[in-house]
């Protein structure tokens, strides 16, 4: 098992290397002199020269790359052009809202979508199933920010049940924290839910058609509930896979959802940094987001080994 995990861990290295290369070249391909960009708009010639020296921009590209990687390894992602703060610090400051939003969305989506998908498979071709599938197709086409505004319009503006936007840290109390997260989580999670509900239904239908389900039936296993739970375990691998794939959707969606709801998280930071061409921050954020995604894939890969005894590790 440990060997398997270590092997999977090593398999992520080339992926992260490609991401690092891309991030590295992003600054080098940016229009203008990278040193001038880093030093900022009203930097003096000396300041620019100092930056060039520090980043080693006058040295060969390969050397620059390894110097940069070495700095990364020491936790140094550079300094923001605009705020002059360390990128790592900026990112860690903005981490909490994003993590809170992503986790709450993940939790709500999984908790709702799997039962819904199971029920749809159980009542296949009946009204419930058609409603669920209709919702899934619709949810899949609904842009997160459009849904967000629809939700805000009704729940916050018309009925005034929930705040229009903003974020409260959990330190300020549980309800204010939760209250601010409800609409963003729904807006962010709807596509994700549609995806999970669809795959749950499909894999359940596939499992329910298997011979071993007929065997279970022939054993007179108690209720439909028992059968469905049994089948769910068999259907787990594709469902978990899609939950993992969907994390990418969530990360992309965070950028937009945080903008709509004015949540001071990594997504908002990304948009601001991009609009201001704050390259060191953009670089750091891409690395962090890509690392998060790779990590999730790794966890999914490892979970297969627990879910399906046929998978060897």
């Amino acid at each position: 098992m440990t060997a398997y995990i270590v092997r999977r861990l090593f398999a992520t290295l080339p992926v992260m290397a490609v991401v690092a290369l891309f991030v590295f070249f992003l600054l080098r391909f940016a229009p203008g002199d990278p040193a001038a960009i880093i030093a900022g708009e009203d930097a003096t010639a000396e300041a620019i020269a100092a930056v060039r020296g520090k980043l080693g921009l006058d040295r060969p590209m390969v050397e620059q790359f390894f110097v940069w990687i070495l700095q990364l390894a020491q936790g140094d992602m550079g300094v923001s052009i605009f705020s002059n703060l360390a990128v790592t610090r900026l990112i860690s400051q903005r981490l909490e809202p994003t993590v809170a939003l992503t986790l709450s969305t993940l939790f709500v989506a999984v908790a709702l979508a799997i039962p819904v998908g199971v029920v749809a498979a159980w009542k296949a071709r009946k009204l419930v199933d058609r409603l669920v599938m209709g919702f899934a197709v619709l949810g899949f086409a609904m842009p997160g920010f459009v849904l967000a505004y629809i939700l805000i319009y009704f729940f916050a503006v018309q009925w005034q049940l929930l705040p229009v936007q903003g974020y409260r840290p959990i330190g300020e109390g549980l309800w204010p924290f939760v209250e601010c997260l409800i609409l963003p989580s729904v807006a962010l999670g709807v596509t994700y839910m549609a995806l999970i509900a669809r795959i749950t239904r499909a894999s359940m239908l596939e499992v329910l058609a298997q011979d071993y389900i007929r065997t279970a039936n022939a054993k007179g296993l108690a209720t439909d509930r028992v059968l469905l739970l049994l089948a769910l375990k068999n259907a787990a691998v594709p469902i978990i896979t899609v939950i993992g794939i969907g994390i990418a959707l969530l990360i992309s969606g965070v950028v937009i959802t945080e903008t709509v709801f004015n949540i001071p998280g990594l997504g908002r930071l990304t948009v601001v940094a991009v609009l201001k061409r704050d390259y060191p921050v953009v670089q750091g954020l891409i690395l962090v987001f890509a690392a998060a995604k790779v990590l999730v894939n790794l966890i999914i890969d490892i979970s297969y080994a627990f879910l399906d005894p046929r998978i060897r590790y």
Binding site: R214, A218, P309
Partner: peptide
């Protein structure tokens, strides 16, 4: 009642031993 009967008083064995057992249990 049928469910109580199945697997208890009347049992069945199927043709495909490869697929008739649940792979994850």
């Amino acid at each position: 009642e049928m469910k109580r009967l199945r697997g208890h008083r009347i049992s069945m064995i199927f043709q495909e031993p490869m697929t008739s057992l649940n792979p994850v249990l």
